[in-house]
Design a binder for these strands. Sequence first.
RNA 1: GGGCGCGUAGCUCAGCGGGAGAGCACUCGCCUUACAAGCGAGGGGUCGCAGGUUCGAAACCUGCCGCGCCCA
Length: 877
Amino acid sequence: MTETTQTRTPDSRPTGGLSAQYQPGEVEQRRYETWVSAGYFTADPASDKPAFSIVIPPPNVTGSLHIGHALDHTIQDTLSRLKRMQGFEVLWLPGMDHAGIATQNVVERQLAGQRLSRHDLGREKFVEKVWEWKAQSGGAILGQMRRLGDSVDWSRERFTMDEGLSRAVQTIFKRLYDDSLIYRANRIINWCPRCLTALSDIEVEHTDDEGELISIRYGDGDNAIVVATTRAETMLGDTAVAVHPDDERYRHLVGTEVELPLTGRRIPIVADEHVDPSFGTGAVKVTPAHDPNDFEIGQRHSLPSITIMDERAVVTVPGPFEGLDRYEARPAIVDALREQGRIVAEKRPYLHSVGHCSRCKTTVEPRLSLQWFVNTAPLAKKAGDAVRDGRVTIEPAELAKRYFAWVDNMHDWCISRQLWWGHRIPVWYGPDGEVVCVGPDEQPPTGDGWRQDEDVLDTWFSSALWPFSTMGWPEQTPELEKFYPTSVLVTGYDILFFWVARMMMFGLYAMDDVQPFDVVNLHGMVRDGHGKKMSKSFGNVVDPLDWIDRYGADATRFTLARGANPGSDVPISEEWCQGSRNFCNKLWNATRFALMNGVTVEGPLPDKTELSAIDKWILSRLEHVIGEVDELFATYEYAKVCDTLYHFAWDDVCDWYLELSKPVLASENAGTTQRVLGHVLDQLLRLLHPVIPFVTEELWIALTGGETVTKAAWPTADKELIDDAAEEELAALQKVVTEVRRFRSDQGLKPTQRVTAALTGLGNVGIDTHEPLIRSLARLDRPSAGFTATATLAVTGGITVDLDTRGTIDVAAERARLEKDRAAAEKELAQSRAKLGNDAFLAKAPEQVVAKIKDRLATAEADLTRIAAALDGLPTT
RNA sequence: GGGCGCGUAGCUCAGCGGGAGAGCACUCGCCUUACAAGCGAGGGGUCGCAGGUUCGAAACCUGCCGCGCCCA
């Protein structure tokens, strides 16, 4: 980065104490503390205002703020601040989930450093340790959220393991149990042999991995059948071979038995519809205890299930392979089979889909075990219907398809985890096989032989209750009364299944069919400046705190929001963040300029009759922008909100309105413009505040002397201020100024070099009164006696600028410029002529379109005439 | 294998039936008393390919090619 140089003498006019550059570091912490201590973010359930509520998708207690959170929170904060300004009673409720596996892993790793395992401590002591860890090191993210500016209600911070939320968990468990929507069964589940716990389907990530495909001959002679498998080691647990019933190759073998090699067991050959005859040899080995599909086949054919591995995926079958883990057992077994001449084919590498634990990436081992499940079908049906019948809207709507695909085909949800950190399953088992589910106010059975289920619940089980458990459910609280259902859930589309579906299921179930949120606003994943996924191995991960340190929270937020187009991922790069920082600085300096020039927000806007066309124009533009921003927010178009405000602020306000206002502000007639500029900046800062809260707060207070922009009223569009005539005038003015500037640039005239020029034809477009302004912006002096033009500019609209460039002009440059203009005009002319020469076009195109083309043709013709004249007037050399 | 989405300027993306746009990058000229984190001007695209619909297609339809994601 280059050092900035300050060569100008400091301006002595009052600046409201604003330095020449915005320094976010000096503003952010101070402002945030003021906001929180003033209670601006504290929600009042007794308020008369309409409610707007968001519960934060609870981050993991072990986690820290990553760029995905930063995006998610920026959106939530933007909505919260917007609604607060719009007069809603806003609750944005913060908190964290207890992250069963992740947190237990962290603490176990700590213990391992002292050569201890959780079993050395025992369950009670271990859980105490985890709470200690949470108190000391957990929840780093909460502090980081303050850096980002999150306007959450800290007085209502919640944690999924809190007493109240735990009570909610037990309540819902008991209800579901009593409604037979929770059951315990022996099923094939996803097992992580490292975390030593069951996982739900969506905690498993599938990747295409290189493995091997081994074809093994079972049986001998006429009876032989060849099966293909990627998991040869599981053959020890085979209890059948399956073929497709229509497969001619094997029809004669169905119903017979073969000997399973290495074991001496005889297993049947069964026919099953689900076998794919085109895979491998068309015959598959069936291992019901170690493969979900095989388990199904086993069920259909009443096959026994033989578990051949323990919870660490170590072979337990007595014999030569006992004690080998699954990856040692595989080659050993293949070797043994090869020695027997039973290996028919070996394919390596063989690419196939493999499931991994989403926490630790260990390959998941399908495992037959006794677990608790939620019977999701009836719950999922309602969750789908709530979206189908419009009670809940998914934004963007295209993602609803994915939602339906999930909820309409949901498997039962395995909710038991073999962990100690979490909500323990409230079920007691008696000495005579009794099973008692205990509700929150009930006493568990006591006496000999009674024991509680050892497992805890999936973290997502408690997270699914978050929209109402955080508000005090199952008590009927004022918070629930006021703020449930929540207004919107903001989260990444990758969380659609984790969050949205499960919160919908439980919310509708627990809250008498009232949905947990009205709108689901899904955003994409944050990617790097080339659209690549961020990953540590790529080294392209952005730390939002680093950006906040170097560019400010506002710049970081603006960069994220500006990339957040509905449904698509959000690319960001440091250069763009610099641009956002620059934008904040631009606002800073525009306000600084305004303060140096005596702007005011006092009193009503001057009457329209007192306003100049310039003032009317910027007010008209402002009204358009307010309307656009409202529409864009209503459709969750954050990127376009940012874009609209960026261009209004930078182009309209700074590049044109401020420049045009300079001569007025320096004159005796500054009053009106001082008031209008004050108004425009006041409104602009309000409009930007939801996205970039810090700099707008600092500037708005400096500008208005008000208490805080966080509570200022959101601008409302006033159609009375829209002024088409003023907008047309300004467009014409801009055109003239830009044309002169282009000429000057092409001619290599220094910006400081004033040029004498005569302007004619301004009255054609009604901008003759703006001649002084045009001269000011284009740096043109009035002609004096003896003025002779050395060049002539023809501007669309019949305006002519005759310039005296004091000496020679660069004829070649000027000719090139005119030739370029001519080419453009000729292209325009040809296109319009072609259209107007087409009878079908004239007959079928709408009138306005035809009129527009005619107009374009006329303009092109007039331009060509003027350009030709200018070219003719050039000296020939 | 099933489903969804995307290919528009060097990069990242808007536009989704009537004149090809933005930000950044690039070129040229500037300390023009708010801002060099700035100002002014400029260059740059047969809108993936091929058909079709239409007076008119970047946009709608079909096919193909390439890329990505989700599910199995």
